[in-house]
């Protein structure tokens, strides 16, 4: 049995204005090859990364928002979104992409990836991680 670690990527920046969101996503995709227990957290401006309807032709940057919906294929099945951060920004879950993963063991049943949690719940999840990466 390999030593499986619980890794959490903590995302706190908006996309496009800085490189953090894209860098984090790339690290997640590369890291997914290592068979670890990976989860993602989005709080503060990080919640903006998951919004629907992004269209980047006008700013000449790659629109990487579609990649979040591939995370299920990379076995990233737990995406925590902080409730307080959404509310502060006037957003609800409906403003975010609908992210799912398919459970191979249950005949590819589609399951929700996003878990809406409040700060206290997210703190509990964080306290159970082995390693956290902040972006």
């Amino acid at each position: 049995m390999p030593d499986v670690k619980k890794l959490m990527y903590v995302n706190r920046r908006a996309p496009y204005g800085t490189i953090y969101a894209w860098e984090s996503l790339e690290v997640v995709l590369v890291g997914a090859a290592f068979d670890q227990d990976v989860s993602l957290a989005f709080l503060d401006d990080g919640v903006y990364q998951l919004t629907r309807g992004q269209s980047t032709e006008g700013i000449g940057m790659k629109n990487f928002s579609a990649i979040y919906s591939a995370l299920g294929d990379y076995e990233v099945t737990r995406i925590y979104v902080e409730k307080e951060s959404l509310e502060e920004r006037g957003l609800t879950l409906d403003d975010l992409q609908h992210l799912t993963w398919e459970d191979e063991d249950e005949d590819w049943a589609e399951k929700e990836s996003i878990r809406l949690v409040d700060r206290a719940e997210l703190a509990d999840v964080m306290s159970n991680q082995d390693v956290m990466f902040n972006f």
């Binding site: 496009y16 269209s55 006008g58 700013i59 006037g90």
Partner: peptide, 22 residues
């Protein structure tokens, strides 16, 4: 929650940056 900070001001936003952010 920051929207009120712009009350009463003449404000413009750049359309392509809006679109990029959905």
């Amino acid at each position: 929650s920051v929207a009120a900070k712009l009350d009463g001001l003449d404000v413009s936003v750049l359309g392509s940056d809006l679109a990029a952010r959905g």
